[in-house]
Amino acid sequence: MLLGGGVALAFLWAPEDGDQGISQRIFYIHVPVALTAYACFGWGAWKALRHLWTREERYDLESYTAIHQGTIFGLLTLVTGSIWARASWGVWWTWGERQLVLFLILFLFYSAYFMLRYSVDEGPGRANLSAVYALFGVALIPVSFLAIRLAEGFIHPTVFTRDGPQMTGTMFTAFLVCLAGVLALAAALYTNELTGKRLDGRLRELRELLS
């Protein structure tokens, strides 16, 4: 509902951008999805750290679920960003943009997490290895996030600068509602997936006990 409200505000209340026109409205879904992907990866790294600290099995599952969510949102970021690039710049992808390339590297890094995880037998060893990998990945987040500010000749727009958001108040409000909506959606999906995985584990345990 929050996300639906945010999208309604983005289309009905926020004014059309004078420079980019209608295609700027992709911003209201693309940027919240990208920030949510960062949040999921960050949450996964935090849970990985908790796992390494306490060696509790549940943190491994929580870290894995958060990274899974982050990868889904990361893929959506790449797809929506690509559509926006095509609409605004006339190309689906450009290798000259550090922001895009770094986000792709981040996405591929976390995609490789699953290959690593499923190439090792289940147990404490796999949990520790996954946790260390998740922690390494989190270092890429600030680099990816700040890349746009470090870049010299870029065409990717910089909306959030030291002077504040470079948009009108209504645009910023619509953006914040969309961001809250996407974060709430991610939290709901995370809780559902985690509950499902725990239930799956319990059912497997029960089956072993009964057979």
Binding site: R25, I26, I29, I83
Partner: peptide, 8 residues
């Protein structure tokens, strides 16, 4: 393009 992004 806007519709495509939201539909995705």
């Amino acid at each position: 393009y806007v519709a495509a992004a939201y539909v995705v």
